Structure formats: C-alpha cells, structure tokens
Simulated scan of single mutants.
Amino acid sequence: MTDIDARLAELGLTLPDAPAPAANYVPYVISGNTVYVSGQISQGPDGLILGKLGVDTTTEEGAKAAATCALSLLAQVRAACGGDWSKLKRVVKLTGFVNSTLDFSEQPKVVNGASDLLVEVLGEAGKHARSAVSAASLPLGVAVEIEGIFELV
C-alpha cells in the first residue's frame, strides 16, 4: 500500500472506480507531465448528489458534495498513473462549478470541501490554485462539478 492509499484508509475514505465519461469525451488527457481531468460530478455510494445551493442545499451539504468530486478526481488520477501513486507530484489547479441561485455567494466555501480533502490526503502536494464559480444548472441536476489539473513526475 502506498502512502496515499494508507492516508485514504486512515481517513476512512474509499476511492470510487474512475467514473466513465457520460458523453463524447475522455475522462483525462495526459500531455507531457500534466494530467487534465474532466469535470467530476458530485456522487457518492448511494448515487448522484443533487441540489441547488441557495434553495434546497446548504453550504455544508455542498462542501460534502464537493469532497465526493475530489475523490473521483483522485480516482481518475490513479487510473492515469496506472495505479502508481509515486507518479503523482501535485495538484496544480481545480475549477469548481456550483449549482446555485443568483444570490448565493458561498461558492468558495462549497469548493473548500474538495480542496480540504485533497490537502488532507496529499499534504503539501494537495495545495493548489483554484476557481469557484456559480452555474445556473449542472448536468443531471448535480450540486457540484469539479475539474482538475495534476502534475506528474
């Protein structure tokens, strides 16, 4: 077991299988030492995590939804590395989309759910640049979608 696997187990977290794309795109692209991971939607073991922040979903629930996106991002990175975590150098950037009302303004607090999880699991290598933006709607009505850029060694 690698340090990342051990850390996930210590935190009681399980990575899902890398989700298959839902349309005509690939889940990730490797270019040089960079992995670009397509947007990962909020979903847990019980299915999709739906909702609109500012109407029927709280900031705290949104942050938990964002954390599931981070787990799916890590699952995609694991697949991109062929299961070899030693190839992962760091998280470079996340872009988080939050399904929210026009007056909802806590998108950064929602996307913190993903950022906090990545730092908890990866330590310094999990710190990253980030954008957190509102979206009037997201695919399938999910609460959060996050895409990521990762550096390989």
Rank of each mutant, 00 (worst) to 15 (best):
M1F: 13
T2H: 04
D3W: 01
I4D: 03
I4V: 15
I4F: 05
L8S: 02
A9Y: 02
E10Y: 13
L11M: 11
L11C: 12
G12R: 12
T14D: 15
T14R: 14
T14L: 06
L15T: 04
P16T: 07
D17V: 14
P19G: 10
P19W: 09
A23V: 11
A23R: 12
P27Q: 12
Y28K: 07
I30M: 09
V35M: 07
V35T: 07
Y36N: 12
Y36W: 12
Y36D: 15
V37D: 11
S38P: 01
S38I: 12
S42T: 11
S42L: 10
S42W: 12
Q43L: 08
G44H: 06
G47F: 07
G47V: 14
G47N: 02
L48S: 08
I49M: 08
L50M: 13
L50D: 13
K52H: 13
K52W: 12
L53H: 00
G54A: 04
G54S: 06
D56S: 03
T58F: 12
E61D: 08
G62W: 02
A66Q: 02
L71E: 00
L71P: 00
S72R: 04
A75G: 11
Q76A: 14
R78Y: 03
G82I: 00
G83A: 10
D84A: 06
D84P: 04
S86M: 14
S86C: 06
V91A: 09
V91K: 00
K93N: 08
L94Q: 00
L94G: 03
L94H: 08
L94T: 06
G96S: 04
V98R: 01
T101G: 10
L102G: 15
F104K: 01
F104L: 01
Q107C: 05
P108V: 03
P108M: 02
K109Q: 09
K109F: 04
V110Q: 00
V110P: 00
V111D: 01
G113Q: 04
A114F: 05
L118K: 03
V119P: 03
E120A: 07
V121G: 11
G123L: 12
E124T: 05
A125W: 02
A125Y: 10
A125S: 13
G126V: 10
K127M: 10
R130C: 10
S131R: 11
V133W: 01
V133I: 12
S134T: 11
S134N: 02
A135M: 14
A136K: 09
A136R: 15
S137W: 14
A143N: 08
V144A: 10
E145F: 04
I146N: 01
I146L: 09
I146Y: 03
E147S: 14
E147V: 09
G148Q: 12
F150K: 00
